[in-house]
Amino acid sequence: MTFKKPVFNAQILNHPPVEQTGVEERTVRFTKRSIKGPSKMQGLLMVLSMIDLTTLEGKDTPGKVNQLCTKAVHLHDQVPGLPTVAAICVYPSMVSIAKKALKGSSIKVASVATAFPSGQTSLRIKLADTRLAVEDGADEVDMVISRGKFLAGEYAYVFDEIASVKEVCGTARLKVILETGELGTLDQVRKASSIAIAAGADFIKTSTGKIQPAATLPVTLVMLETIRDHYHKTGKKVGMKPAGGISKSKLALHYLVMVKETLGDVWLDKHWFRFGASSLANDVLMQVAKETMGNYQSPAYFSID
């Protein structure tokens, strides 16, 4: 699939306003659906299969990344039949290591890029950063938008930057991180989502995980609604990735309910929905173990990588 770099059209800024209280009221309803027994098990396995297992630290080493990759493949071998996570998410310098460690598995390697997490550098360096990740074999690129430019109203700049990065990505799927914790209002989240989608994002993603608040149900709902509107208008699907702050199974299941009721069952697939998380997997595994064995196991039985 070749990517034709789109041109900024101010029309995309004409989105409906967002009423925060209404969004919050709606998200409360998603937390009240009943998910237990087989439904819970199916949901938990789905969550596992959608995780982008993440390590994004200054102290990351090949040793750490290798161990994380092993975890990605062998989530908890004591319970047979578990899926693997969807992807490993690392810094560009770790892509080749992760790629090697995951050889032969279907797990994708995602790399953050564009001067993650702040994005405070020139476009030239952002493109070089992206190119490095892609050349080393990244299947997916998680870029950050220039929040400074966005908040200064330079929407065309933000748009062009995303489009340029997408161009460099080639066949790698592009996730665009809005860093909603820095955008201030849900209206801004909606606007940033529209810009990212129009500029060619394959996924839109809430946060870097470095800024609080990270992913929340209301923010994610506004982004899902933007995706829905785009789909109804163009017939094209865009993926969604909430990241940061989702560390409990129950909350993860609430996210799935929200996706189901907003975008439909088609989006309940790792191709269209991901969780960016580092500690979620073990909490889900503990729940899965409980569902299969009947009682809760000590955290000591679950590997930390």
């Binding site: 659906r33 009943s34 998910i35 237990k36 299969s49 578990l82 309910v257 189901k260």
Partner: peptide, 13 residues
Amino acid sequence: MATKKKWEYSPAP
């Protein structure tokens, strides 16, 4: 993918 069955909520009477 573990299963492709449609995900339904559990009855909670």
